[in-house]
């Protein structure tokens, strides 16, 4: 069984995002870049399925500029068998990403595709669902537990009402939620080993993907700040204030 994992590079989640003063974007120069945390969880799940003997081949794929190679080496060091780098200098929107991943699916014929539920930069939460639709296959989004039973997967999903369990026939797209697993740390020898693992580069143009980048971002702004309120000294003052506001 083969698993394809989407592995996006994003601004590290610890970076405090600053909007440029002219509103043309957010400051990304010189900030730390890391794998999207949900994608690390996706890769970890694929590796665990391989360790359980369910899968044999784990392929990580990314769509991004030339310097994403180091990022993919990170995925290989974590344990992926090989990597595919679709090279483009443009940031692609989810529909384009899904169409591109579909091309990789046609080439690789995976049994399971695992993606993060969303990237923590654009927070779109779309690519997995779009890919499943274009592929005409099931989607199991926001997964917090995955069990493979032969030709189907039983997936527990984190939904607003609680935990929903569904069965999906394979092949299928699964997107990860936070509690699916805790990704492993990469050890030094694995970084060395990753250097000799296969990494294929494919120019995005060569895949003849119809662009789905239909949205134009025209302005960036810092979020409206809540003003700092008052500090009260005791419960009596707090309750009195809440009563004045008609809240209790």
């Amino acid at each position: 069984m083969k698993i394809l994992v989407g592995y996006k590079r994003v601004v590290d989640y610890n970076v405090r995002i600053q909007v440029k003063p002219d509103g043309s974007g957010v400051v990304t120069e010189g900030v730390k870049l890391s794998p999207n945390p949900f994608d690390d969880i996706a890769l970890e799940e694929a590796l665990r399925l391989r360790e359980k003997g369910v899968a044999t081949d784990v392929v990580v794929a990314t769509i991004g500029p030339a310097d994403c190679q180091a990022h993919l080496r990170n995925g290989l060091a974590m344990g992926a068998n090989r990597a595919i780098h679709v090279v483009t200098t443009q940031a692609v929107q989810p529909l384009t990403a899904a169409r591109t991943l579909l091309k990789l699916i046609e080439k690789e014929q995976p049994d399971i595709v695992i993606l993060g539920k969303q990237a923590i930069d654009d927070d779109c939460n779309q690519t997995g669902q779009m890919l499943a639709a274009l592929w005409n296959r099931p989607q199991a989004t926001f997964a917090s537990k995955v069990e493979i039973n032969g030709s189907a997967a039983r997936v527990t999903r984190e939904v607003d009402a609680g935990l929903e369990v569904i069965d999906v026939d394979l092949p299928a797209v699964i997107t990860t939620d936070l509690r699916l697993n805790e990704p492993r740390f990469i050890k030094l020898p694995d970084i060395m080993k990753a250097k000799s693992k296969p990494l294929e580069t494919i120019p995005l143009e060569s895949l003849a993907v119809e662009s789905g980048d239909h949205l134009k971002t025209t302005a960036y702004a810092a979020p409206a700040k809540r003003s700092k309120g008052v500090m009260v000294k005791d419960v009596a003052e707090l309750v009195a204030l809440l009563k004045t506001k008609g809240l209790v």
């Binding site: 995002i17 909007v19 927070d123």
Partner: peptide, 11 residues
């Protein structure tokens, strides 16, 4: 976007 740390206008 960015967990609410920036607000974008999209067309």
């Amino acid at each position: 976007i960015y967990a609410g740390n920036a607000i974008v206008t999209v067309e």
